[in-house]
Nucleic acid binder design. Structure first.
Lengths: 337, 337
DNA sequence: ATGAAAGCGCTAACAG
DNA sequence: CTGTTAGCGCTTTCAT
């Protein structure tokens, strides 16, 4: 079946193409009766207006993009699910891109988006890098950006995230309360907002308890599971921490595996807590204490925020940060003996 | 910054817009020097060709869609990751849609795709339903479809999936080998290919071992975690199975939770094995025996297959099914005592 | 309430 | 190798 057009439809109905066109917009100037007649015929013929022709005219793509650094954990799947849900309810389509934690990939993806392909972008920042010109290009093209979960300190934009500082403080405090005195912090990348803010919460808790912050207990990791495990092993052997606070789930999982190999008992010799959206944290052995972010809600909130900007492009909003509450779930991995 | 067009660029360079256009296609007829000059200027001005204008002309969207039923487990995130990777390497963009296991949603999504928005569709079927006219519409519009993991029996199309029959047979055989005589099968939905084929493998293993297939040991589940748990509890209480083969991960997780509540020991009183891509199956308590599908590879394979069709639309391929090997990982949940 | 006509930005014949 | 020209299918004034 070749493409049927608005003209074909107009001819079969004895109308002009303008009238037919109006039937598909929420147009004012059309009688309900003709509109219905047109829509019925369209349904019958399986016609729907060519997307590219209308986008070319109207300059709207009805499409947003999600750019995420990785797909390893439940957080991002849940967030995407939330975003897609909202987008679809707004009749928007959702493009997905995974950078694999590479800023270069992020930049190249973003550049492929400035030709009108999307009306807005939801992004969770990938890694470090000081050059955010790719994002600036987007802004210059009037494509609004909303960050979620991870952003860049030196790029000012809208940001929806968890109350990470407070959650991190409480998680660390919890380790202290359960007897830890030598707590290590595993950071995904201290140059990314998420790594830094969570570390600030960790530092605050130490300070509150008169514990000295020690650089040697901070492990800045890479995008390589094998290297990370070696580094964690090294950390455990060298500095014998009695508690570990991991800023992301996969670092906690690596810790569990290393502990198993090294014969370090959790929680007896080492207490562990981490950020995670794992819904089976309670089924792990030992059950894992987690800071659980409201991933699904965060996706929805970020998307809603983006659509609010899209709906009122005039209302030039200030840079705005929305914090959502995470919940702390204490289980066996950090249990006091 | 307002849109800069190919004409503006042509004027600044003292060229015609066709020449400029050619610089952006992989066009033959243009001198390397002019091409370079154009591309340089474009870079300088931050210009890239308007997507909708070219799609309108060329009838190509450089976009594919992924439609999946749910986002609950690692299988789909991994598959998507694979798809997106291949798509991006082909300079394609990837739209994502989640149906939440609803065929109605699937139909409405598919209908929003026939206006040229996508060049092809990768889909994992949602639920049952005999009416696949929405998919037929896609075919009528010359949009190729490739199924992955889950398809419809009565809709003939390309299909990339695991060797589910054989894996299921082996998984069930494994339970028999470890002493099970009364094995229940938890099916996601027996009307979907995935549920049926996996059940066939299960039946074959029973048959091979002279064990009677019993309808009462088959639990057809719903899209509702709470109801499923109640049904599993009921199954366990009523029929006291000594082994359970779950066709999807979430049913196995529900089983573990029910067993915990009911004081049924795994593997002592009940052995469990399931399809799952969980990378921490070994960290669960008890560690979970799984049939692990090559999710990432499956995503890549399905995408490659779609692009092969897209590259050679003339080569009208026969309906074709590609099977990828799954691996069986036996751990404590199905251990012989 | 409907129709006529101009043109969105680009591509691809065709001509040179 | 480059330029001219005619649309792709739709939306949107401006008439009527």
């Amino acid at each position: 079946m070749s493409q049927i057009t608005i003209v074909d439809l107009a001819e079969t109905l004895g109308l002009s193409k303008s009238t037919v066109s109006r039937a598909f917009r929420d147009s004012s100037d059309i009688s309900p009766k003709t509109k219905e007649r047109i829509l019925a015929k369209a349904e019958e013929l399986g016609f729907s207006p060519n997307l590219y022709a209308s986008s070319l005219r109207g300059n709207r793509s009805q499409t947003i993009a999600i750019i995420i650094p990785e797909f390893g954990n439940k957080f991002f799947s849940q967030a995407i699910k939330g975003i897609e849900l909202i987008a679809r309810s707004k009749k928007y389509h959702t493009l997905i891109y995974v950078t694999d934690n590479s800023v270069q990939n992020e930049a190249s993806i973003v550049r492929s988006l400035v030709n009108g392909r999307v009306d807005g972008v939801l992004i969770s920042a990938s890694g470090e890098g000081k050059d955010h010109s790719h994002l600036q290009t987007l802004v210059d093209h009037d494509v609004p950006i909303v960050f979620f979960d991870r952003s860049y300190d030196d790029f000012h934009g809208h940001f929806v995230t968890g109350n990470d500082f407070e959650s991190s403080r409480l998680a660390t405090q919890h380790l202290v309360d359960n007897g830890c005195k030598n707590i290590a912090y595993l950071v995904i990348n201290r140059k990314v907002s998420i790594g830094k803010i969570r570390m600030d919460g960790y530092r605050k808790a130490l300070e509150d308890n008169g514990i000295l912050f020690q650089e040697k207990l901070i492990l800045d990791t890479e995008n390589d599971e094998v290297k990370n495990r070696a580094a964690i092993r090294n950390l455990i052997q060298q500095h014998k921490p009695d508690g570990i606070f991991a800023s992301v789930e996969r670092l906690a999982i690596s810790t569990i595996r290393v502990a198993q190999q090294e014969g370090v008992q959790i929680p007896e010799n080492l207490k562990l807590i981490c950020f995670s959206c794992l819904d089976i944290a309670d089924l792990l052995s030992p059950s894992l204490s987690v800071v659980k972010q409201p991933a699904f809600a965060m996706g929805k909130e970020a998307a809603n925020f983006l659509f609010r900007i899209l709906d009122k492009p005039t209302e030039l909003r200030q840079q705005e940060t929305t914090l959502l509450q995470s919940s702390l779930i204490f289980q066996d991995s950090s249990r006091k003996l």
